[in-house]
Amino acid sequence: MKPNYRRCISCRKVGLKQDFWRIVRVFPSGKVQLDQGMGRSAYICPQMSCLQAAQKKNRLGRSLHASVPETLYQTLWQHLAQSNPQNQV
Results as ranks from 00 to 15, higher is better:
S49D: 12
N87H: 15
C8A: 05
G15L: 10
Q86Y: 12
L72A: 05
P28E: 00
W77P: 09
R7C: 13
V24T: 07
D35M: 12
V14N: 11
Q36E: 14
R7I: 13
Q82L: 06
S83G: 13
G30W: 02
C8H: 00
A81V: 07
D19Q: 14
A66D: 01
P85S: 06
S83P: 13
T75K: 14
S63R: 05
K57G: 10
Q74T: 13
D35A: 11
W77I: 12
I23E: 00
R6W: 03
S49N: 12
K13R: 11
L34D: 12
L80I: 09
R59H: 14
I44M: 08
S67Q: 06
Q18F: 14
R22F: 03
P28Q: 00
M48C: 13
Q74V: 13
C8T: 01
G30R: 02
F20L: 15
R40E: 01
N84P: 08
C50Y: 00
V68N: 08
R59I: 06
K2Q: 09
K2F: 07
L64Y: 05
N84K: 11
C8F: 01
N4G: 01
Y5L: 04
A53N: 10
C45P: 09
L80P: 04
M38C: 05
Q52H: 13
L64V: 12
L16K: 14
K13E: 12
L64T: 05
Q55V: 09
Q47I: 09
R40M: 02
Y73I: 12
P69C: 10
I9V: 10
H79D: 15
N84Q: 14
G61I: 15
V68A: 13
